[in-house]
Design a protein around this nucleic acid. Structure first.
Lengths: 160, 160
DNA sequence: GGTTATATTGGAAAAATATGCATTTCATGG
DNA sequence: CCATGAAATGCATATTTTTCCAATATAACC
């Protein structure tokens, strides 16, 4: 189906853009984008996207996207590729290296999203990432140089 | 308060031991442990612990503990009390090494729990861990080989 | 101790979320 | 084009979770 696919994309976009605290809220945002659907359908969509309701910093509830897993398991549906790589430099500030680790600093709260995109790229140069609030740690594959990492990252962070 | 503290501990233990899909379920488990409380109180407890309801691998809902090493903010009671080591393979998928870092990939949402257990073991081979959603990073002690790490981990991940 | 602020809790109700069932839509292979 | 099975969806409802309010219990302070 065409509608559902783009709706799921819209949901991902909205979740990574603003703070949504309930399905009703999300329903309103989706309505602004021209999607008409009921809460029942949204519940199913969120379930499929594995979106979770967490507790934000001020104790508020908030829906958040999961980090996509690099490995697909049996029974696991839901391919989670973002439509396109972000061309904007979404919060990127700096990158530093230390041995086989790279530390990327971002503006507050941007680390998760950036890590999300890096994960999705499945770079062979990077074997894993961990994100905090404004820091992303990358573990570099053995035998891979820093420039190789930079070159890879440049595809999603042009001005790195 | 004494009761609440130990109750929160019990909740953590239960969550890392078995799969809980609803607050009612948790209430039953807590009752077995001798805790009497209403679902309203449990909802508040879970909120305070920042426990989240995620979607498990078979599409089932499941409550999971927050990541141990991240999201530790001011007010939160940070002590993750030592729990009995549980023999479980919970979500383990793979492990890769790069220098003094090991990256364990798990099924979605299992990383926090796994890191929790590894931390509790206090392996001399592992000086620290960081957990994301489906990734655990281990910082290996200087002069320790990869096989030594595997050997240590085998006590909690038999089929590693 | 006595008094006042803070935290904890239960009960009930509100709010939010999930799901069974029927219907429509979509995709596929004659 | 039509039949057929699968997917998507809405509606109504069941289930689950959160929150309001009042009652205690706990802690802090003088």
């Amino acid at each position: 189906m065409k509608v559902k696919k783009s709706r799921l994309d819209a949901i991902r976009l909205i979740l990574s853009t603003q703070e949504i605290g309930s399905q009703e809220e999300m329903l309103n945002e989706l309505a602004k984008e021209g999607f008409t659907l009921t809460q029942a359908t949204l519940s199913r969509d969120l379930h499929q996207l594995r979106v979770v309701k967490t507790v934000g910093v001020q104790g508020k509830y908030r829906y958040v996207l999961p980090r996509p897993s690099q490995y697909r398991h049996e029974g696991e549906q839901g391919e989670m590729r973002p439509a396109a790589v972000i061309q904007e430099t979404a919060g990127y500030l700096s990158i530093k290296f230390s041995g086989n680790i790279a530390v990327i600093h971002t503006k507050p709260s941007y680390a998760g999203t950036l890590a999300y995109h890096i994960d999705n790229c499945d770079f062979p140069e990077i074997i894993g990432t961990i994100a905090g609030d404004d820091t992303v740690m990358l573990i570099i594959a053995e035998g891979t140089g820093h420039t190789a990492v930079l070159r890879a990252l440049r595809s999603i962070i042009p001005n790195i």
